[in-house]
Design a protein around this nucleic acid. Structure first.
Lengths: 160, 160
DNA sequence: TGTCAAGGTTCTATTTTGGAACTGACGACG
DNA sequence: CGTCGTCAGTTCCAAAATAGAACCTTGACA
């Protein structure tokens, strides 16, 4: 299966993965949320090769997650900023950070603290239900086909 | 930078990405949450090559996300199940699904619906603050170094 | 004229992946 | 007995992606 074949799958995860399912892309996005915007800064922080960085930034722009904006003329210089579509990835990154903090942290504890400015506390992200507001765990969720489903999206046992 | 170098980074995202930052791994995990457990079923559903599937399953077992369990003897057959560590990835996958639904869905709408069994409604995942319970957006969050921070974890502008 | 900076591109060598065939332990069929 | 089918992989080779390093371009500055 090719990269671009993934984006034509019915599944939302497959389509999302076709955009961000790459280790460098995820690390680039992490830095974007830390307000990194410039090619050289990404390169220094990530240790990624310039070739691949250019490629990933191009793909992220093409998919509408980042926007390339000129921040000076003469000489022309560009920076990369999260679009609204890119900002919507915040929950994905926050969930990833939290999982890493829980299961992969070193003995010194978490490397970064997140403060919720509305309540002024350091917090952990909690996945809540949009309907009742309670926290959701894997066992509380049942899946079923939606309007955009194709016949093979769920395994046989679940498609009833 | 090599794969295994990533897991030695201080950043929780980098460590998480060293485990799940791969398109196939994410798709395998999606299927795990749909209760797929067997080699052949993964292979049929994903269209992944058997070689790569075996490699990714091995890595997920090694990192403690999946457990390999014998489900019959004669002939010996094994299946792969999410461990508690793996189940903790549920918010990551849910966030990814939701982003895909929002920004990448086809014209027929979302392919899969999620029902919260506690309140019996179809729902969207919302990222909430563990301290005040309110929904969190990217703009409501400030980051700062935590106990496990290294000097280079945040860009210069934010390390104050 | 020479140097520096940002934001790339080009080159080759190494790694990873795709695609297909093969293995090995069994059970069932005829 | 011989053959077929299933499941969980492994092996092989060709094609694609990545790493690492050097190079290019535009313009500022001295």
């Amino acid at each position: 299966m090719r990269w671009d074949a993934l984006s034509k799958e019915t599944c939302s995860v497959a389509r999302a993965v076709s955009v961000i399912g790459d280790r460098w892309t995820l690390l680039i996005l992490r830095d974007c949320f830390l307000r990194v915007r410039r090619f050289e800064v990404f390169q220094d922080r990530l240790g990624i090769t310039r070739h691949i960085l250019a490629d990933r930034l191009r793909k992220l722009v093409k998919s509408g997650v980042l926007a390339r904006a000129q921040y000076q003329s003469r000489p022309r210089r560009y920076e990369y900023r999260l679009t609204p579509k890119g900002l919507d990835l915040h929950p994905v990154l926050m969930s990833l950070v939290h999982w890493g903090d829980l299961h992969m942290a070193g003995r010194n504890g978490r490397p970064v603290l997140h403060r919720h400015t509305r309540c002024a506390h350091d917090f952990d992200p909690v996945l809540a239900c949009s309907e009742c507001g309670e926290a959701v765990t894997a066992k509380d969720v049942r899946v079923r086909p939606g309007p955009g489903a194709s016949s093979d999206i769920l395994p046989k046992e679940l498609s009833s």
